[in-house]
Computed example of a mutant assay.
Amino acid sequence: MTGSATIRKKRRPVLTVLLALVLLLLGSVAIHRLVPPPLTFLMVSRTLEGEGLAYRWRSLDDISPRLVEAVIASEDSTFCAHHGFDMKAIEKALKANERGGRIRGGSTISQQTAKNVFLWPGRDWVRKGLEAGYTVLIETLWGKRRTMEVYLNVAEWAPGVYGAEAAARHWFDKSAADLSPREAARLAAILPSPRRYNAGAPGPYVRRRASRVMAAMGTVRDDGLAACVLG
Rank of each mutant, 00 (worst) to 15 (best):
H83P: 00
V17H: 01
L230I: 02
E69T: 02
A210D: 05
N97R: 08
S175M: 07
I31Y: 13
V150R: 01
S211L: 10
I138L: 14
I63S: 01
G163I: 11
H170P: 01
G163K: 09
S28G: 04
T2S: 15
E149D: 05
Y134F: 15
D61N: 13
R46V: 02
E131I: 04
A184P: 09
P36N: 04
D178W: 10
P38W: 15
P38D: 09
L94E: 13
A227I: 05
E75W: 07
L34A: 11
E156Q: 15
R127H: 13
Q112T: 04
G200V: 10
L130F: 06
R196Q: 12
A188H: 11
R46L: 09
D223T: 11
P194M: 07
G100M: 13
W142G: 05
G27L: 08
E156V: 03
G50V: 05
K95E: 15
G3C: 04
P13T: 13
R12G: 03
A70N: 11
Y197D: 14
A216C: 00
P36A: 06
S28I: 10
E139M: 08
P38Q: 02
A215Y: 09
E91N: 02
W125A: 10
C228K: 09
K128Q: 03
S193D: 14
I103R: 15
P204G: 06
G231M: 10
V161H: 05
R12S: 14
S74K: 10
D76V: 01
V154H: 07
G163M: 11
H170T: 04
G129N: 14
I90V: 15
V126N: 07
K88I: 13
W57S: 06
N198I: 06
G105W: 03
A226C: 06
K10G: 15
V229K: 03
L25M: 13
G50D: 07
R186A: 06
E91Y: 04
F41V: 15
R127I: 11
L119A: 10
G218Y: 08
S4V: 11
L137Q: 01
T16P: 00
I63T: 11
G50P: 07
S74G: 06
A164K: 00
Y197K: 05
E139L: 02
P13G: 12
S74F: 01
R221L: 05
H170S: 08
G3R: 14
A70P: 00
E51N: 12
A176P: 09
T113Y: 09
V29E: 05
A5H: 03
P36T: 01
A199R: 09
G160M: 05
S211T: 14
I103K: 14
G200S: 13
D86H: 00
W171Q: 03
R123L: 10
V29N: 04
G143H: 04
G163H: 03
F172Y: 11
T147S: 01
E49P: 05
G231K: 03
L119W: 02
Y205L: 08
D173K: 12
A114S: 13
R56E: 12
A81D: 11
A167E: 03
K92M: 14
